[in-house]
């Protein structure tokens, strides 16, 4: 019973992470919904007393990876404009909007690490466990993600980007 409530309490955090991960609001909520469905189906695998949040993020990671894999053929086409157009609606300043687009350009595995650490505030060990990768890999992906995001932000001023979308 407490676990059910604990999961309900974690939904806003799952949504925040999903929104940053996939950008579009309804696609993000679809990801959260699939994650919750899968969590129920696999709940017998969760060991009570361990970190429920980490477990849920692991489930979400697996669901997301499977979806990305299934969508791969169309990914090449949506590389740039369509996704940017979807993402442009949110955010309240050019700088923030720019960040959103730059984030979308990161490789999936780098974006996941960056968001777990920077947004979800996971320790490097927690992020490593959630993603099933070594801590060293977390550190290198984190560093590359931040650097790439920074470079994208520096090279594309907001005004230039907006004309592209148009």
């Amino acid at each position: 019973m407490d676990e059910r409530q604990a999961i309900v309490d974690l939904i806003p955090r799952l949504r925040r992470y999903a929104r940053a991960l996939v950008g579009d609001r309804s696609a993000a909520d679809d990801l959260v919904q699939d994650t919750l469905e899968r969590a129920w189906a696999k709940f017998h695998l969760y060991r009570g007393g361990t970190d429920l949040r980490a477990w849920l993020f692991t489930v979400m990671h697996n669901v997301h990876v499977n979806r990305v894999r299934a969508q791969r053929p169309t990914d090449a086409i949506t590389d740039d404009l369509p996704e940017m157009a979807q993402r442009a609606a949110q955010g309240d300043s050019l700088m923030v909007r720019d960040m959103d687009r730059a984030l979308a350009k990161l490789p999936e595995e780098q974006r996941e690490v960056l968001l777990l650490v920077a947004l979800e505030d996971m320790s490097y060990e927690e992020a490593a466990r959630a993603l099933g990768i070594p801590v060293g890999t977390v550190m290198s992906r984190l560093s590359r993600a931040r650097e790439r995001l920074r470079a994208t932000m520096l090279e594309t001023p907001a005004s230039a980007k907006l004309t592209v979308v148009k």
């Binding site: 059910r4 309900v8 949504r15 909520d29 919904q33 919750l36 129920w40 189906a41 017998h44």
Partner: peptide
């Protein structure tokens, strides 16, 4: 939180 998500979360996990 959209209702469709809370609805999923209201379900009781099978074995639990």
């Amino acid at each position: 939180v959209p209702e469709r998500l809370t609805r999923v979360a209201q379900r009781v996990p099978r074995s639990r």
